[in-house]
Amino acid sequence: MTHTGWSDFSFDGIGTRWEISTPEELPDGVRASLLGVVEDYDRSYSRFRDDSLLAALAREAGTVTLPAGAGELEQLFRKLYRLSNGAMTPLIGGSLERLGYGAGYALRPLGHPVPAPRWEDVLEWNGTEISASAPVVLDIGAAGKGQLVDLAAAVLRSAGITEFLVDASGDMLHSGAEPLGVALEHPYDPTQAIGVVEVHDGALCASAANRRAWGDGLHHVLDGATGRPIETVVATWTMAATAMEADALATALFMVDPTVLEGEFDFSWLQVYSDGYAAYSAGFEGTLFS
């Protein structure tokens, strides 16, 4: 989703496709900085590579020091863990691997679903320091891609670029004078749209059960309290000032009542349920097709 006439810089990172769109072609130095930020983030947080910082905690109990932005992740996850009564948790990685969504992408369940460990039982996370009292598979994907979108935007702004679109496969941050119309992908048919929304100087993020689905009813949005895929909500979209917050709230909408989230976050939202029903906030200024 790009502005007509803009230049695109596309690459793969953290397992997804990125498109950075700007009015002028990006200098080589800025491109190198963007690729470096994405690689550094992957090396810190990925649960799909053996050499990441978080992978060390999956092998044995201990403490690792994460990059500066880890404190923002901690605060966001801690709040959503509380609001969801443990359903949304960075400890969901082991439950995902149990259902087959691990480093090898086997996509075959290894057994019955297992709940995530309780945060208060195994994890101490204070800013950049994170300690586990037992081996744990951490997964910060519910907010991590959004945070990386924000970090990419910071690279552009530091280079004096004020008009841009950072799009990480549907999680996007826009900056510029002119709003951008974005189609909302149909949760059951990626060739169709269920509506359109305008993004302007902010983030739009989406989460859908069909994006990473396999087997019989298996997908990547799990309830941490049970380890089971969530079946009621099938797709969400959120708009917020930062992509990190919008990304996390798109997942939270699968398991937390929107009015509860609205009490603590400034965002707008759209939910689509498995029966086709759609609900949305007053601030979600889009057009849904009938």
Rank of each mutant, 00 (worst) to 15 (best):
M1G: 13
M1H: 06
M1D: 15
G5H: 11
G5W: 05
D8G: 02
D8P: 00
F9W: 04
S10E: 14
R17P: 00
S21E: 03
E25I: 14
P27V: 09
G29I: 07
V30P: 10
R43W: 06
R43E: 03
R43D: 11
D50P: 07
D51E: 15
A56F: 03
A58R: 14
R59H: 12
A61I: 08
G69N: 10
A70Q: 09
K79C: 14
K79D: 13
R82P: 01
L83K: 10
L83F: 01
N85Q: 13
L91W: 05
G93D: 04
G94M: 03
S95I: 07
S95R: 01
L99N: 02
L99R: 00
L99I: 05
A103I: 06
L107N: 04
A116N: 09
E120D: 13
V122P: 05
L123K: 06
L123H: 03
W125S: 07
S131L: 03
S131F: 09
A132M: 10
P135A: 15
G146W: 00
L148V: 13
A152D: 08
I161Q: 05
L165A: 04
V166G: 10
S169Y: 10
G170N: 01
M172W: 00
M172F: 01
M172C: 10
G176E: 06
G176K: 06
L180W: 07
A183W: 06
H186C: 15
Y188C: 14
Y188Q: 08
D189V: 11
P190D: 14
P190E: 09
A193E: 11
A193T: 15
G195N: 12
V196I: 14
V196P: 09
V197N: 14
E198A: 12
G202L: 13
A206E: 13
A206G: 11
R212K: 11
A213P: 07
G215S: 11
G215D: 12
G215A: 10
D216E: 15
D223T: 15
A225C: 07
G227D: 02
G227V: 06
R228H: 00
P229F: 13
T232K: 13
V233F: 02
W237D: 07
T238C: 14
T242L: 02
T242N: 09
T242I: 02
A243L: 07
A243D: 06
E245F: 02
E245S: 05
L249Q: 06
L249C: 13
L249F: 04
A250Q: 08
M255R: 01
V256Y: 02
L261V: 05
S268D: 14
S274E: 08
D275Y: 09
E285R: 05
S290Q: 08
